[in-house]
Amino acid sequence: MYYLYIATGFALLLSFVVNREKTLKAVTVAMRRFVTILPAFVGMLICVSIVLFLIPDKLISNYLGKNNIFIGVLFASFFGSITLMPGFIAFPLCGILLKKGVLYMVLSAFSTTLMMVGVLTYPIEKDYFGVQLTILRNIMSLFIALVVALMTGIFFHEIF
């Protein structure tokens, strides 16, 4: 976690040395973004605090952890494909789930399908690009997400 602080501090300092005005503007942008996103954030935290109370940790790590890798990844990619969630919400949520014992590869399947596969955006995509391309692109994206999950699993020593 410390490298994040170091990187941010360094970037901020560099930016400040090069151009003070832009840096101040950047901080303003950051604050504004934070305030805009805050309500959604609080909502997410409240929902998660309740849902994670109702679902015991054991159940989570059982179904999305080491014992059921295959089902976990399938479930996660299904869920990621059918939901629509901004990254601002999704990754903090993944961070919480990670601490609860959910595997990296499950979260990878979830976040990648969330970003690349759009079941809910199908009507919009179809209007722009037609049915054929939309379906092929989404299938292709799902496949990429599964490969990414597999590689994540290998590199984090969660499988093999």
Binding site: T8, A11, K22, A26, L45, V48, S49, P92
Partner: peptide
């Protein structure tokens, strides 16, 4: 739950948002 999640968030969010702000500028 809420308090521990919120603390985790508050540790990371300022950095993330400042980096995004710098990037946008």
């Amino acid at each position: 739950n809420l308090v521990s999640f919120s603390i985790d968030m508050l540790k990371l969010l300022p950095c993330a948002f400042i980096l995004i702000g710098l990037f946008e500028v």
